[in-house]
Every structure is written in C-alpha cells, then in structure tokens.
C-alpha cells in the first residue's frame, strides 16, 4: 500500500452525527473513506471501554461524535 490509509473508528450518535453522515450521503458530498462507523443510540452510551477496545483491536484512531 503506497499511501497510509488509517482506520478511524467512529462512534456516532444516532440523533446527531449519524444523521449528519446520512445527510452528507444523501447530498452526495465527498469525504475520506477512512472512517468505520458504529452507530450508538446516544453519546451517553459511550464508555471508555469502547475506546480502549477499539485501540486494542488495531484502530489507528477513535472519534466520538455527538
């Protein structure tokens, strides 16, 4: 692989960022393909466990968005 293609584990809130991601898709906007989205019911569902589990299993970075 010539270029560094990191995997960014993304935790997106169902009502906020997930909606934004959906809208971005519907509006045919372009954004980097490096994010791997996990939809969570609310950012309140987030736990430090998830972040560490993600990093442990090889994610390059973790992004939490509400």
């Amino acid at each position: 692989m010539a270029e560094n293609e990191p995997k960014i584990l993304s935790f997106l809130c169902n009502w906020c960022s997930y909606g934004a991601a959906d809208l971005a898709g519907v509006s045919r906007m372009e954004y980097p393909p490096n994010i791997r989205v996990i939809r969570i019911p609310c950012t309140g569902r987030m736990s430090p466990k998830f972040i560490l589990a993600g990093l442990r299993q090889g994610a390059d970075a973790v992004w939490v968005s509400g």
Binding site: C16, A20, D22, M29, Y31, N34, A61, S65, G66
Partner: peptide, 26 residues
C-alpha cells in the same frame, strides 16, 4: 482520539470534521 459535536443538519460540518481528522491521523 477525537471528540466532536455535530447536529444532524450539519452535513457540511460532518464532512469538514472527517476530512480534518483523517488528515491528522494520516
């Protein structure tokens, strides 16, 4: 590790943030 706050109407902000984070991680 990144945190952000995006409303469901802010698709432009979403694209911005994804791009920024990807660049930073790269």
């Amino acid at each position: 590790l990144h945190f952000s706050w995006i409303s469901s109407a802010e698709s432009t902000k979403f694209v911005d943030v994804v791009t920024k984070i990807t660049d930073e991680v790269k």
